[in-house]
Nucleic acid binder design. Structure first.
Lengths: 141, 141
DNA sequence: CTTGTACCTGTAGTAACTACAGGTATTACA
DNA sequence: TGTAATACCTGTAGTTACTACAGGTACAAG
């Protein structure tokens, strides 16, 4: 897994330290390794995973992408480009814009839901009666 | 499972017919039964599920709620009120408004994501060069 | 009588983790 | 040096809301 830029080798980290630095759960880090998002790191004599700067950067990348709502598959594609060391800005941009379009669709869907919920709940007087226009609206044939 | 209003007993439906009427997948209907969202219907001599108007209404209710983004647990709460035959309009309204608030939060989150993605991808010239500001932004420490 | 369709049960797979159970290794302190 | 706490290990199961089989039965039409 080649790094993008500015690779500085430094002291190694145990999984707990990496977890604290990146704010990624320990179990999640191991999970990423299992599914191939993170490489198998070298092990210490005791069998503990020892992480270097490379891993810290990669995990940070994954974390940021997740926060931006990319799925693991989308991130895999992004990392694939980077790993191949043969990506063009154009390809990355395309993936990013596709993702943005998906988000915009989701926003519109949710806004439509919100409108419907507002309409439905506006019908409700909020009284203590058992005849509820919300339930009626949902239950009717 | 008491009905809300206008219960008209009529001909019974096989699972395929119910599925077609409600546009809910057959496997999903059986799944709802397994997890207790739908009651166990009576069986025909051949062991086939036979559904009545009650089931059609209940499933329609579930479907509508799902389309409105309610989780199965939220729907369970709603159905619990209806099943208890002792709900007040107020309770239903509260659940609905809570759900609406959650949707509004989600919309805001997604809008923030969209803004960030726009900012990031605006930095990109879209050229064919391997130095990509998007990747840089995500990869940097 | 055979073919097709609709139904049946039960299990496994999806996404992205999280939460154990049960075991080892290292470190801190008395 | 002994022991107790902590950090790590592996492997499996649970979460949400389904979907997709595999392998089997029942019934109707030609």
């Amino acid at each position: 897994m080649p790094l993008h830029k500015n690779v500085i080798s430094s002291t190694s980290l145990a999984i707990g330290a990496l977890s604290k630095k990146t704010k990624v759960n320990i179990e999640t880090i191991r999970y990423y390794e299992r599914i191939g998002m993170m490489p198998h790191p070298p092990r210490s004599r005791a069998g503990h995973r020892t992480y270097a700067q490379v891993h810290l950067k990669r995990l940070t990348f994954i974390k940021r992408c997740r926060e931006l709502g990319f799925t693991l598959n989308e991130i895999r594609a992004l990392l694939g480009l980077v790993d191949g060391n043969d990506y063009s800005c154009q390809e990355v941009r395309t993936l990013t814009l596709q993702h943005k379009a998906a988000i915009q669709t989701k926003i519109k869907d949710l806004q439509r839901l919100e409108t419907t919920l507002t309409q439905i709940s506006d019908k409700c007087t909020g009284g203590n009666i058992p005849e509820c226009p919300i339930i009626d609206a949902l239950y009717a044939e």
